[in-house]
């Protein structure tokens, strides 16, 4: 059947839906990265690694705070009716993942601040004695630190999952209409965060640990991508067509080259060789993982927008 729509040429809608530009993939990537960093930081607090003075759990919350704020700025820039953004916080819509997300983001900030309070810069301690007092009090309780770690891990997981659920709840775009997208974005967020910490960690043990963890995350991510594509291919015609956008269609080149090979397989190989002491650790592997994570969000968002239902009588 040949279908021709005339007289409609709505901006962002025709000739195909393209309402979300660079802002949403950037926001989803930064949200996922922060989610992964919160889980890693939370784990180090919970497991007692915070006793090491150079533990990454002391500087990750500060970086998370900056990345999350940049992500929220990107989200804000995407809004078309910016002066009404406050409306997000006058209601809670249980059926809307975006509403869930906006409230999760509000909860994430105080947890990051609690984590930041555990180690204050000297200048802050001198200028604001009250913060020093709070910090000292917090550091005197091992259980409190462990609980902050647990809350970090929990909210990090919520944030990471939400970035995927946000898209998969939109059934009108067949590529996103998969219940496994939350796991893909969570794994990609964890993998990106592990790579980032691997890149900047001062502690040698942490670098080695996170390189090993990243290998695990990358393998799971690859497996989840495979399951997602199988799920789409064995589904209805529109879902099959959506999968084909990645496998052999419009977005196939960037998907295979940048997401699968450069973003997963090559860094996985490099890190496997490094953790088995065949080669030295190289910053190339984590940089590729982070690059792959960004491009994954762009590919999934853009290909998802392009995928659509079609009318067959």
């Amino acid at each position: 059947m040949l279908e021709l729509t005339t007289t409609r040429h709505n901006e962002l809608i025709d000739p195909f839906f393209h309402a979300w530009g660079w802002e949403i993939p950037v926001y989803l990537f930064l949200g996922g990265l922060v989610a992964g960093m919160m889980i890693i930081s939370g784990y180090f607090l919970f497991s007692g690694r915070y006793k090491e003075t150079d533990c990454s759990c002391y500087y990750l919350p500060r970086l998370s705070f900056i990345f999350l704020s940049l992500g929220m700025l990107a989200l804000f820039l995407d809004l078309e009716h910016k002066q009404y953004v406050w409306r997000l916080y006058t209601t809670f819509r249980v059926t809307s993942p975006m509403s869930w997300g906006s409230w999760i983001l509000i909860l994430v900030y105080p947890v990051l601040i609690a984590n930041m309070l555990l180690r204050l810069p000297e200048t802050t301690k001198q200028k604001i004695p009250l913060l020093k007092k709070i910090s000292d009090k917090m550091n005197s309780s091992h259980n409190l630190i462990r609980n902050i770690g647990v809350i970090n891990m929990f909210l990090g997981a919520m944030l990471g999952m939400y970035t995927g659920i946000l898209l998969s709840s939109l059934g009108a775009r067949p590529l996103w209409s998969t219940s496994i997208l939350w796991l893909l974005f969570l794994m990609s967020g964890l993998s990106g965060a592990a790579a980032f910490v691997h890149l900047i960690a001062k502690n040698v043990y942490e670098r080695e640990l996170l390189a090993k963890a990243d290998n695990g995350f990358l393998i799971i991510e690859l497996f989840v991508i495979m399951l997602m594509i199988i799920g789409l291919v064995v589904s209805t015609q529109v879902h099959k067509e959506a999968a084909m956008l990645l496998l052999s269609g419009r977005y196939a080149a960037v998907f295979w080259v940048f997401v699968i090979f450069i973003g997963i397989l090559i860094p996985l190989l490099l890190q496997l060789l490094a953790v088995n002491h065949k080669i030295h650790h190289t910053p190339l592997a984590p940089i590729l993982v982070i690059t792959g994570g960004i491009i994954l969000r762009f590919v999934i968002v853009y290909a998802g927008e392009y995928s659509h239902w079609f009318i067959v009588k």
Binding site: F17, W20, D78, L79, H81, Y84, M98, A172, E305, H308
Partner: peptide, 20 residues
């Protein structure tokens, strides 16, 4: 007056019946 222009509704419509 309640719409923030997030475009979630546009993305969720299989008919592409909405616009900004």
């Amino acid at each position: 007056d309640e719409c923030i222009g997030c475009k979630a509704c546009l993305a969720s419509c299989p008919y592409d019946a909405r616009f900004i």
